[in-house]
Amino acid sequence: MATKPKTEKKLSKIDIITFYMDHVLLHEHVPKSVYKFAKDHKFEEKNFYKYFGNFDALREGIWETFFQNAHSLMSNNEEVANYGSREKMLTFFYTFFEILSANRSYVLYVLNEHGDQMKNMKQLKGLRKHIKSFAKDLIEDDNDEKAYSFLKRNENIYSEGAWIQFLFLLKFWKDDSSPDFEKTDVAIEKSVNTIFDVFDNTPLEKVFDFGKFLYKETMK
């Protein structure tokens, strides 16, 4: 009786991402070519191109996957659905940086790979769109609940501010040597609360408090 040929295990997007991250950490350099990368990990080169056009797209995809994982964890939590925009933003940043911390060796390597920081930041292009869209959605939900137009926040300005805030937190996290990155958690709380307080036109004591915190951490 003829035997059925063995079917090759279907390669997933996450498989390729995992192979790539492991390669970078083990060899301390990016793969030389897609062909060799596929051979080293025993899959056909054409399967790489089902998900990514090149390694630059893969690197962007890794950051976008970090975002998607954080967003999924939030979406699957029934309590988060009842949070206001401030609490949702806090939850997102806490969750996102937990994911970064779980992949810290890879993240630190790729963020310091080149002497030119612009090259290092290029991989965040897709992530920037996701974070800005997420922040814009939060503000749109808030604005829908406001009866008067003068009380509404500018969605474009806020979404850009959320991205700048993320870049600050990313730099802070990179330099954070506290146990379990406790200082990053404090920075997340203070920065998110400060931004929402500014947009809500509440007293600026927290802005001053946040400024003191940044000064203290920077001067250490």
Rank of each mutant, 00 (worst) to 15 (best):
A162I: 05
L167P: 06
S101C: 05
A102L: 09
V107P: 00
D40M: 13
K119I: 08
F66I: 02
S178V: 06
A147Q: 10
P5R: 14
V80N: 00
R86V: 12
G161E: 12
T184H: 05
Y158V: 15
F67C: 01
E160N: 12
F150C: 11
D15A: 02
K42P: 00
N54W: 07
E60V: 09
E87W: 02
M121P: 00
Y49K: 06
S133F: 10
T3A: 15
K125L: 10
D200K: 13
S72I: 09
Y106M: 04
N82Q: 12
E60W: 00
G115R: 09
G211H: 11
N112P: 00
Y94F: 14
K212S: 11
L90W: 01
R104H: 05
A147L: 15
I17Q: 03
F168C: 03
E140V: 14
Y51I: 06
E44L: 11
F134Q: 05
N77K: 02
L108C: 02
N201G: 13
R59K: 14
A102P: 08
T95D: 03
K50T: 15
K220Y: 11
A2I: 08
G53Q: 12
G61W: 00
L127Q: 07
A57K: 13
K32H: 10
E87S: 15
K136F: 07
P31Q: 06
D137N: 13
F43M: 09
K174V: 15
D176F: 01
F196K: 06
L11C: 00
M74Q: 07
K136W: 06
D141P: 00
F19K: 06
G53Y: 07
E155W: 03
K190C: 13
D141I: 00
W163I: 07
M21Y: 02
L138M: 04
E28K: 14
G53V: 11
S149R: 13
V80Q: 00
M118C: 03
F196G: 01
W163K: 05
K136M: 10
S12F: 05
I17F: 02
V186Y: 08
E87G: 09
K183E: 15
E78L: 08
E98H: 09
K88D: 02
S133R: 12
L73G: 04
A2M: 10
F67P: 01
D56L: 15
E44D: 15
E140W: 06
F181H: 11
F97K: 01
G126H: 05
E217M: 13
N77C: 07
F168Q: 11
N82R: 10
Q123K: 12
G161R: 05
T202A: 15
E160T: 14
I195K: 10
Y148F: 11
K171M: 14
K174H: 12
A187I: 04
L58A: 01
F134H: 04
E98C: 06
V207D: 07
V207N: 11
Q123F: 06
K42I: 13
Q117T: 09
K119V: 08
Y109Q: 08
T202Y: 00
N103Y: 03
T202K: 14
F93D: 03
L138S: 04
K220C: 10
M118K: 13
K152A: 02
I62D: 02
Y158L: 14
V80C: 02
N82A: 15
